[in-house]
Amino acid sequence: MSDIQYKEITFTVNGKERSVMIDVRSSLLEVLRNKLHLHSVKKGCEVGECGACTVLIDGEPFDSCIYLAVWAEGKDILTVEGLMGADGSISDIQQAFIDEAAVQCGFCTPGLIMTSYSILADGKRYTRDELRQKLAGNMCRCTGYHNIINAVENIMLKRIEEAEVKDS
């Protein structure tokens, strides 16, 4: 296997700058899971269909399975591991997934949390249908999406309310 092409990439992962030597044939999923041991990034299909491998790249959700790791050079990557505070606190979205029973087998959960995180980042108000559309790249076989949408909607409304209170 001497002809394998390697390359060092430098990128920010969950707030920390990392340099890793990678086999250029690797997907970002491979590097995150197997090199950096970020096991929240799940593999459900390897072809961009299920969303279990969703991570944020510069704030936008991508399927890390169909993203070549070499492209991550200089990018800012966020996974569920990166949502935990230094004190072990979790984000309001994660807490909402717990509170709304939006978690069952949990395999889709990290991907869905990352997509939700990006949806709610802009502080805008979306209808339930819009939320459905924005979550449509993440499949879940256990929940029928009902409680997931409840979780995302609740946090959206809560944040909007808090922002309004602050403003006034």
Partner: peptide, 9 residues
Amino acid sequence: VGGPQVRNI
């Protein structure tokens, strides 16, 4: 097209 992630790539 596809879903949000596919539309991003």
